[in-house]
Amino acid sequence: MVIRVRDLVKRYGNLTALDHLDLDVQAGEIFGLLGPNGSGKTTAIHCILSLLTFEQGTIDVFDCEMTPDAYELKQNIGVVMQNVAVFDELTVYDNIDYFCGLYISDKAKRKQLVQEAIDLVALNDFVKFYPKKLSGGLLRRLNIACGIAHQPRLIIMDEPTVAVDPQSRNNILEGIKKLNQAGATILYTSHYMEEVEQICSRIMILDKGRVIRTGTKEELKATISLGEKITIEVENLPSHILENIKTNPHIATFDYDDHVLVARFIRGENGLVDLLELMNSSHLQLGRVYSELPTLNDVFLELTGKELRD
């Protein structure tokens, strides 16, 4: 086991930030911690890294107890913090070299590793730039390069794509996949469900410091009652059609507003063909038609009663 957390309790005064958290991260996986802001993701990361003390529980990394002075363990951990942590006075190259140098003392090896990190995050054209000259996306990439340059066995990434443009985000996510393919185990936190769905092999959903559910994205989606969501653009939907939809036993919920019909089917039921036939029978003029599978947001919504982005 790469990370093993048991019964972790962290309180800030009266607020319980982590409520008896259990977490297992296995070697080679990209483990996603998903939850809205304030759900306890960063607190969990800080506790795992011994940056915070906690009231109760145990944390093991690589089967050894994690403590502030567990320097041998830290040697194998790479950290990408939520806030960009680089020196404004150092160039891109010097920043990566600085952080890599905290782990690797051999100059020649370090030079090679720094170059590999630069290649991975595609910062080759910016090595002589100072951080203040970089865009938000490039700065995030630099932050990642600083955290992974020493090629650690475990990489902990705390919301590395916050406030990043889509292009840079894809670049970063591709980089994370490459690191994982190269053998690194990754603990990844985010409140963007699309990212977590895209790269994580297992996901833990957190809310208010408590574990809501853990599993693969398929397993998580299988736990909810809702199935596909069908959206149809249609003008002037007759009342008898609406009545027909209302009485359809396969449709869990529906809504018709502003010439758009949204129908949520019960899990396992596919009603797209039936619904379209119903529309055709009344010779209705249809606009665009969408079919979407349940998302992690739907999982979160059903489990907590609120949207993930709240």
Partner: peptide
């Protein structure tokens, strides 16, 4: 942020 980042490293 830099302090936390340094504290995560094996440097004492």
């Amino acid at each position: 942020d830099l302090k936390r980042r340094n504290l995560c490293s094996p440097m004492t």
